[in-house]
Write a protein that binds this DNA or RNA. Sequence first.
DNA 1: TTTATGTTTAGTCATCTGCCTAAATATGAC
DNA 2: GTCATATTTAGGCAGATGACTAAACATAAA
Lengths: 125, 125
Amino acid sequence: MTTPDDLFKALSDRNRLRVVAALLQSKELCACQIHEWLGVTGATASKHMGILVASGLVLSRKDGRWVHYRLNRKDTNLRSLFNWIRRQLKADKELLDDLNKLNSVTACPPVELRKRQREAASTCC
Amino acid sequence: MTTPDDLFKALSDRNRLRVVAALLQSKELCACQIHEWLGVTGATASKHMGILVASGLVLSRKDGRWVHYRLNRKDTNLRSLFNWIRRQLKADKELLDDLNKLNSVTACPPVELRKRQREAASTCC
DNA sequence: TTTATGTTTAGTCATCTGCCTAAATATGAC
DNA sequence: GTCATATTTAGGCAGATGACTAAACATAAA
């Protein structure tokens, strides 16, 4: 296992905490959904997910070209940490608003989402 | 209260986590004891303690020229986080060894400790 | 009031972090 | 096999972080 400060370091970034919050209420999220919701490039999102996976907090599952992420709920220690985080989130107004917007991202399947993302990228400039 | 990622940021530094670990087993520690035990300059230790206090994790008490630090055990949310940390520390070999050395620092009162620190500083070079 | 001393602040430097774009990699579709 | 596409890696840049020394500040002692 990683040391506590490694775990805290993984959680010390706002965007990574947002991902954990999102995964607390969604069983699984696709890389492209996370990238869309965070509002950063796919490369940046990938980096963040790499850190979360390396810390052990998050597990990934590859399905063809798609990568799906979920919380590591098997680990007892992590589970109690997740519960603590879940309780704190209730007081984090900004994050709660943020999580509401997650629904519009998860509403459409990854394939549709990527299609929209590609279109948006091509129509600008 | 600070947001969860602020708390995690405060805990994401190894030296600050060491301080929290030390305060988990010592009711109070003087600034000079922390500076001695961490093995960094007083200025650096002061900076770290400032971050811990700002995050709400640690409380400080000024007694003349001396400043004493203790965990903020009043806050229920923090207390459960401290308990979680305490459990994790048991698996952190390096930190456990480290905490043993804390005894030799707390064994002598701050006044004596500073005297030794001053002497050590003057005899070198 | 002057001096000594515990702590903090200011200033500097090297390293780390998070973001981006562009290129590389991996895999499904034709 | 070749192309399209989801993700990761590489490289670069701006800002944050943690360390130090020196100076400033606060307070007890002489």
